[in-house]
Computed example of a mutant assay.
Amino acid sequence: MSPRAVVFDMDGVLTDTEIIWDEVRRGLAADEGIPWPPEATLAMMGMSTQEWSSYLVGTVGLSGTPEEAARRTIDALVARYAHDLPELAGAVDAVRRLAARWPLGLASSSPRRLIDVSLETLGISDAFTVTVSTEEVGRGKPSPDGYLRACELLGVDPATCVAIEDSSNGLRAAAAAGMAVIAVPRPDFPPAGDALALADAVVADLDSLTVDLVEGLR
Rank of each mutant, 00 (worst) to 15 (best):
M1W: 00
S2V: 10
F8G: 05
D11Q: 06
D11C: 07
D11H: 05
D11M: 09
L14C: 10
D16S: 10
T17Q: 04
I19R: 14
I19S: 11
I19L: 14
I19A: 15
I20D: 01
I20P: 01
W21C: 05
E23G: 00
V24Q: 02
V24L: 11
R25N: 03
R25C: 05
R26H: 12
R26K: 15
G27Y: 12
G27L: 11
G27Q: 10
G27D: 03
L28F: 11
A29M: 08
D31Q: 15
I34A: 05
P38I: 12
A40S: 08
A40W: 03
A40K: 08
A40N: 06
T49L: 07
E51P: 01
S54W: 06
Y55I: 07
G58I: 05
V60D: 00
L62T: 03
T65C: 03
E67H: 14
E67S: 12
A70C: 02
R71Q: 12
T73R: 11
I74Q: 12
L77W: 00
V78W: 03
V78N: 00
Y81I: 14
Y81K: 02
A82E: 13
H83L: 10
H83C: 06
D84M: 08
L85A: 01
L88D: 01
A89M: 04
A89G: 13
V92N: 01
D93S: 13
A94H: 01
L98F: 05
A99H: 12
S108H: 05
R112C: 00
L114D: 02
I115T: 09
V117R: 14
E120Y: 02
D126W: 08
A127F: 09
A127T: 03
F128M: 07
V130L: 11
V132N: 02
S133Q: 13
E136F: 10
G138P: 00
G138Q: 14
G140K: 03
P144D: 12
P144G: 13
P144E: 12
D145R: 01
Y147Q: 05
A150M: 11
E152T: 12
D157P: 06
A159R: 15
A159Y: 04
A159K: 15
T160M: 11
C161N: 00
E165F: 04
D166A: 06
S167H: 08
G170W: 12
A173S: 15
A176H: 05
A176N: 08
M179C: 03
V181I: 10
V181W: 03
I182L: 09
A183H: 06
P190G: 14
P191A: 15
P191D: 05
G193P: 00
L198Q: 09
D200S: 14
D205E: 15
D207H: 11
D207K: 00
D212Q: 13
D212N: 09
L213S: 11
V214S: 10
V214T: 12
V214W: 01
G216E: 10
L217P: 00
L217D: 07
L217V: 04
R218I: 11
R218M: 06
